[in-house]
């Protein structure tokens, strides 16, 4: 395999990344003849033969196992909650996957457990070919999120907001005195005092806008130390 793109290069749709017979399709690429081409605007990260594309923009596409933040939008269907997960498709949460405990909906009703507008931190259990999405809450750490503020961000910057071994998000939580949940679907839930939430939001906005630039961690560190936006 011959790598044609350079490290850190901004790729446009159709740009050749590598050529040869042993090329493999990765996320954000397609194979055109014997060339691997980019299909989205992205930044190339190349280490030897290991190629990865960091997308600059793009809507969230659901995959099995993704941890997401969603908002309950419908509880009318029997035994089903419908959840807005910040993408083109609605997700469904069946009552039997909504908790480890038995939920007696006949006695208390559906809205007793989850009601309209409530926010949940959940996991995608299954995605069908036609994009029917099933969620689950049967796992430690998955819960209903009470209070707090929801904030959208570019889902492609999820890894950057989390940081290496969650270092970035832990730093933001610590310095701003807030509690933050970040969903892979481009939604962050922030809880704390109003001014602290504002500060945390500003930091996430900067990571969102400048996530592809090197030296961002240092900039965020300095910003949080000074307690003001640079």
């Amino acid at each position: 395999m011959k790598v044609l793109a350079k490290e850190g290069q901004i790729l446009c749709p159709g740009d050749a990344i590598a050529s040869g017979e042993d090329i493999k399709e990765i996320e954000g690429t397609y194979i055109n003849g014997n060339e691997l081409c980019a299909s989205i605007v992205s930044k190339a990260s190349i280490k030897g033969d290991n190629i990865r594309l960091i997308a600059m923009k793009g809507a969230y596409l659901p995959y099995e196992g993704d941890y997401i933040i969603g908002k309950i939008i419908d509880v009318n269907a029997p035994n089903w909650y419908f959840v807005d997960i910040n993408c083109a498709y609605e997700a469904g949460l069946n009552i039997r996957d909504a908790s480890n405990q038995y939920l007696d909906t006949e006695r208390y009703g559906m809205t007793h457990y989850f009601s309209y507008g409530e926010v949940i931190f959940s996991r995608i259990q299954k995605v069908s070919d036609t994009m029917r999405i099933d969620l689950t809450m049967k796992e430690n750490g998955l819960m209903k999120l009470n209070g707090g503020v929801l904030m959208p961000f570019n889902p492609n910057k999820f890894a950057r907001i989390l940081g290496k071994d969650d270092s970035m998000i832990n730093m933001i939580q610590e310095k701003t005195n807030t509690k933050i949940f970040v969903g892979m679907n481009g939604l962050a839930w922030i809880s704390g005092k109003a001014l602290d939430i504002k500060k945390a939001k500003e930091v996430i906005e900067i990571i969102d806008a400048e996530g592809h630039i090197e030296g961002l961690t240092k900039k965020i560190e300095d910003m949080l130390k000074k307690g003001e936006k640079k």
């Binding site: 446009c12 749709p13 055109n32 605007v41």
Partner: peptide, 9 residues
């Protein structure tokens, strides 16, 4: 392309 839609070219 700016919206991040996957395209051939």
């Amino acid at each position: 392309a700016d919206a991040g839609i996957e395209m051939r070219d």
